[in-house]
């Protein structure tokens, strides 16, 4: 693993160049208190003063709405045309929890049936991570096996250091990127970057306002599907899709056709949410998850149990977005703690 150093000025110049050569996606201050990952034309549009973006950047690998193919039924014939492959992209400024979110999505879109749309974007997107410099009050990545300076999964990891930035190439793709733009960097001869990152990690580790212990929670849920506790949570749930849409690991989607003239159209997919009542409702009316209780339970079991059953990975990375945004304070940290307590009394 090789490390490099760059000055603050060079970071801006480098990002300007990247924006010219790639689709550069980076955090942008959209409104007061709203940070979104968006394509930028240069460094000037980027806002680095953020802890976590409002919506997770997963949408740049798994877009909220993605056209899959065009169809035409004109003349009684069917013609299917592929959509244009996306341009190579770089996502700059991914926080470690969001990188882990992508690693959590990878096995879903791989497996027996690799998803070509996801794979295509994933392969054409270079992930540049950015170590956190502070911890927000809803962050709990360390409780979910991550850390604010744990950039595993990124191609390049950037750390703010005294007088500039340190870069670590974590993959050959990251190394190639450094190589291509080598004028902006100098090799880190004295392990400054790693030392700075480790020091930062230690400093931030003590700043988490709340940690949770997931030990035994999955095993308890394995044995306890029916819990009155879910009624309690579901009663206040609004059944909106906030938690699922801002989440870096939620991957549910719907597929739909759009053909305004009835002959030519597009088949797309878009995010859907297991919190919505019609998500599982069948055409005949039967709904296997008929009330908010089943739906809320499904979401938390997906995060804490099902994803581990299927992929041996936690379904939650501890980014804290759902904690911040839930209008009725459904707080997964509290749920984990409550389940621990229920388990102890069981």
């Amino acid at each position: 693993m090789k490390a490099y150093i760059m000055t603050g000025d060079n970071l801006g110049a480098w990002l300007d160049t990247l924006a010219r050569d790639f689709t550069l996606i980076a955090p942008v201050k959209e409104e007061e208190n709203v940070i979104l990952f968006k394509p930028v034309k240069g460094f000037a549009e980027i806002n680095l003063n953020y802890t976590n973006s409002t919506v997770s950047p997963k949408g740049w690998i798994f877009p909220q709405t993605e056209e899959m193919f065009y169809f035409s039924t004109a003349g009684g014939q069917i013609n299917l045309t592929d959509v244009q492959a996306p341009r190579p992209a770089i996502i700059f400024g991914l926080r470690p929890c969001d990188i882990k979110g992508i690693l959590t999505l990878d096995p879903v879109f791989n497996g027996a049936y690799p998803d070509p749309y996801y794979q295509n974007r994933r392969e054409n997107t270079i992930l540049v991570g950015l170590c956190c410099t502070r911890v927000e009050r809803h962050c709990f990545c360390t409780s979910m096996g991550g850390g604010p300076t744990d950039g595993r999964g990124a191609d390049l990891l950037v750390t703010e250091i005294d007088g500039g930035y340190g870069l670590e190439a974590l993959t050959s793709r990251g190394e190639e990127l450094i190589h291509r733009y080598q004028g902006y960097f100098t090799p880190d001869q004295h392990s400054r970057v790693i030392l700075a990152r480790e020091e930062l990690g230690q400093k931030l580790a003590g700043q988490f306002t709340r940690t949770v212990d997931t030990t035994g929670v999955k095993e308890f849920l394995d044995q306890n599907f029916e819990l009155p506790y879910w009624d309690e949570i579901a009663r206040r749930c609004l059944g909106c899709g906030i938690c699922t849409y801002i989440c870096p690991t939620c991957h549910c989607f719907d597929i739909f056709d759009f053909a305004p003239d009835g002959e030519r159209g597009v088949r797309s997919r878009c995010w859907d949410s297991c919190m919505f009542s019609h998500f599982t409702r069948m055409a005949g009316g039967h709904n296997p998850r008929p009330t908010q209780k089943e739906r809320v339970r499904n979401r938390f079991l997906h995060k804490l149990k099902y994803h581990r059953d299927r992929y041996d990975l936690d379904g939650c990375v501890g980014c804290g977005r759902c904690v911040t945004k839930c209008p009725v304070n459904i707080d997964i940290r509290q749920i984990i703690a409550d389940l621990q307590e229920v388990a102890q009394h069981a």
Binding site: A112, Y113, H251, R269, N298
Partner: peptide, 24 residues
């Protein structure tokens, strides 16, 4: 079993019963 399915390949997340996908 019959469940509402969209992708049929274990990704869209709606036909699960516990951690099993009916489509897979």
């Amino acid at each position: 079993l019959e469940m509402k399915m969209k992708c049929g390949i274990g990704k869209c997340g709606r036909c699960n019963i516990g951690s099993k996908y009916v489509c897979l």
